[in-house]
Design a protein around this nucleic acid. Structure first.
Lengths: 151, 151
DNA sequence: CTTAAATTAGATTTTAATATTTTTTTAGGC
DNA sequence: GCCTAAAAAAATATTAAAATCTAATTTAAG
């Protein structure tokens, strides 16, 4: 549905959106999002190449979001990692010239379209508000829970 | 989104649904659906174990659908291959006890739910009627096209 | 029996995910 | 200005999972 890699990218972007004024290093983001550090480095690089985050090398370097979270959609992030699977063309070898796919691939393509629509209307800003507070990622929510539970 | 394997399974089921009275061998299904024969054998085996198709060994053996296409949904087939990815629990290490996920994983889970809903309301029978005729798979449609194009 | 088929098991290939190491950039202290 | 250390970038492994292929085995019809 949505690859691990894409999910990691979304976590990282949400994490950064929640710290608008900091420059976050790969290690910090990796810890905060529970993503393997080595792999996250690649993910961040992809996001930088796609223009979604800005990267700064050297001391006090790190990453920060390029755009306003209100103007950045989950689809933007997703597409930067890998396109949503669509069936614009018949996947069965032979080329297809008509506007219509067979019913099976029409359904599968519709699923892709719906996914794109959902991701496209979800801004990163939307992902920053938790149920009743500031719970941008499950990790943070869970940390809050722990405090409530353990004492 | 939907793995190659699952898509293959759906093709095979549609193919069989279109030939209700034949026993179709792996090779025949593979040719008709453009799926690699060796791999399809495994897919068919999974479908048989899941009770979706019936398998018969020996001469004149092969596969045929177990249920009526009207009673079999695309979700049934999908689930037989691999479950739709849901985020019932927070994927960030720590357990989560509340009914709510963080906004990000809520959105991702909603996408899974929508996918399940779409697949669940689509019966295999629905996939047998083409736009204006009997075009159950793109392959067949393309074959028809070829006739129209090449002469 | 013989033959056609699925089943089983295994090997291989490809792609995704992850880790490691080296190189390049750059801010800040001397 | 030049060194140093902190960071990303780049390149290169390694591992794991998905997809594919092959060959041996079992089943059953005729």
């Amino acid at each position: 549905m949505i690859s691990q890699t894409t999910e990691y990218a979304l976590r990282a972007v949400v994490f950064l959106a929640n710290r608008p004024d900091e420059s976050c290093t790969t290690v910090v983001i990796a810890e905060g999002t529970q993503v393997p550090t080595g792999y996250l480095a690649k993910v961040m690089h992809s996001l930088a190449r796609a223009g979604i985050v800005h990267s700064q090398r050297g001391p006090h370097g790190g990453f920060h979001l390029q755009a306003d979270p209100k103007d950045l959609t989950a689809l933007d992030v997703t597409e930067a990692m890998e396109p949503v699977q669509r069936f614009g063309k018949c996947p069965l070898g032979i080329e297809h010239h008509t506007p219509g796919l067979c019913p099976l691939h029409r359904v599968l393509d519709d699923i892709g379209a719906t996914m794109e629509e959902t991701l496209g209307k979800t801004t990163i800003a939307d992902l920053l508000k938790g149920d009743g507070g500031r719970i941008p990622l499950c990790k943070v929510a869970a940390d809050n829970d722990i405090h409530q539970i353990t004492d």
